[in-house]
C-alpha cells in the first residue's frame, strides 16, 4: 500500500470504530477541504451512506460563499445538517473586535459545546490534523472530553494498536479524529486522486486564494496563482509558509490554540 492508501484505510477504520462503538455520533463539517475529504471517507466507509448528521457551527462571520456552498451541497447530497449559532452572544454584541480569543470561545467553542449537550452526542467526529498546529499534534485519535467539555491534555490515556477509548462515564464525550495523521499535502493529493469537488475559494482569482477557510474578519488570503488542484499541490510542495499563517486567532498568544482547545475548541 502506498502512503495515501494507508491513510485512507486508517481513516475508514477509525470511522467504522466510532460508528460501531460510540452511541450517538455527529460529524463536524466546516465546508473546508478537510471536512470535504472526511465526508468522502465516511461515504467510502459506509458504502455511499453517511449514517450520522453533519454539524456546522455558524458564527455568522463566515465567508459568505461558504454558506451558499454548504446549503447547496447538503441539499444535493440529501445530508442531515445541524446548524447552530450562539445567538445569545451575538445579541450581546460579540464579534472579533471584542478580542479574537473571546470571540472564538463564544461563537465557536461555546456554540460547539452547546450542540453536543443539546443533542446528547457521545461522539463528535472532527477533521483536525496533527500538522496544523502544536496542540493538535499531541492529540489522540479518540480523545475524551469531560462533562464540562474540558480536555485533560496532560494526562491522556494510552492508545495502543487501534484499540481506542470507547468506554467513558455518561455525560462525557469523545472527539474522534479520523484525519489526525494526514497533512495538508496529503489532503490535496487525495482530492486529486479521488477527484473530489471542493469549494472554489481555494482556487486563485486575481492572484489570490484562500489556503485555510474560517471567519471572514480573521482569515487572510495568500498571494497565489494556483487555480487547479494540481497547481495547489505543486505550490505546496515548494512553500515554506505554514498553512494557518492566515488565521489570526493562532497568532494572538504563543499558546492560543492550546488554551482554546483545552476548553473544547475543535
Amino acid at each position: 500500500m502506498n502512503h495515501l492508501e494507508r491513510l485512507e484505510a486508517q481513516s475508514v477504520y477509525i470511522l467504522r470504530e466510532a460508528y460501531k462503538l460510540l452511541g450517538k455520533l455527529g460529524m463536524l463539517w466546516s465546508i473546508g477541504k478537510d471536512s470535504t475529504v472526511m465526508l468522502w471517507l465516511a461515504k467510502k466507509a459506509f458504502y455511499g451512506h453517511c449514517p450520522f448528521p453533519l454539524i456546522h457551527v455558524d458564527t455568522t462571520f463566515k465567508i459568505p460563499q461558504m454558506i451558499v456552498y454548504r446549503d447547496k451541497l447538503a441539499w444535493e447530497l440529501g445530508l442531515e445538517l445541524i446548524v447552530h449559532t450562539n445567538r445569545t452572544a451575538l445579541d450581546q454584541g460579540m464579534g472579533p473586535e471584542k478580542g479574537r480569543l473571546a470571540c472564538c470561545k463564544a461563537l465557536k467553542t461555546d456554540a460547539l459545546n452547546r450542540v453536543v449537550k443539546d443533542h446528547a452526542f457521545d461522539g463528535l467526529i472532527v477533521g483536525v490534523r496533527r500538522d496544523e498546529e502544536g496542540s493538535r499534534s499531541k492529540e489522540r485519535v479518540f480523545s475524551e472530553r469531560n462533562a464540562e467539555d474540558k480536555w485533560d491534555y496532560a494526562n491522556q490515556p494510552p492508545e495502543l494498536w487501534d484499540q481506542f477509548k470507547t468506554d467513558f462515564p455518561k455525560g462525557h464525550h469523545i472527539r474522534v479524529h479520523p484525519l489526525l495523521q494526514w497533512n495538508e499535502l496529503d489532503i490535496w493529493r487525495y482530492i486529486e486522486r479521488e477527484n473530489i469537488p471542493v469549494i472554489d475559494l481555494y482556487f486563485s482569482q486575481g492572484g489570490r486564494r484562500y489556503r485555510s477557510l474560517g471567519c471572514a474578519p480573521c482569515t487572510g488570503q495568500i498571494a497565489s496563482s494556483a487555480a487547479t488542484v494540481r497547481e495547489i499541490i505543486t505550490e505546496l510542495e515548494y512553500t515554506s509558509v505554514s498553512e494557518r499563517a492566515g488565521r489570526a486567532q493562532d497568532q494572538e498568544d504563543a499558546y492560543a490554540m492550546q488554551k482554546l482547545r483545552k476548553e473544547g475548541y475543535m
Binding site: 496533527r130 500538522d131 499534534s137 495523521q181 497533512n183
Partner: peptide, 30 residues
C-alpha cells in the same frame, strides 16, 4: 518544534507523543 504544550516548553520535557511527517532524499518518514 515538537514540544508544543506550554508545560512542555516551560519545563523542558516531553509529556506526550507527537507524530510528524518528514522526508529525506530517499523516502518519507512518520
Amino acid at each position: 518544534l515538537l514540544d508544543a504544550f506550554e508545560e512542555e516548553q516551560k519545563q523542558g520535557i516531553t509529556i506526550d507523543i507527537t507524530k510528524r511527517q518528514f522526508h529525506t532524499a530517499k523516502r518519507g518518514y512518520i
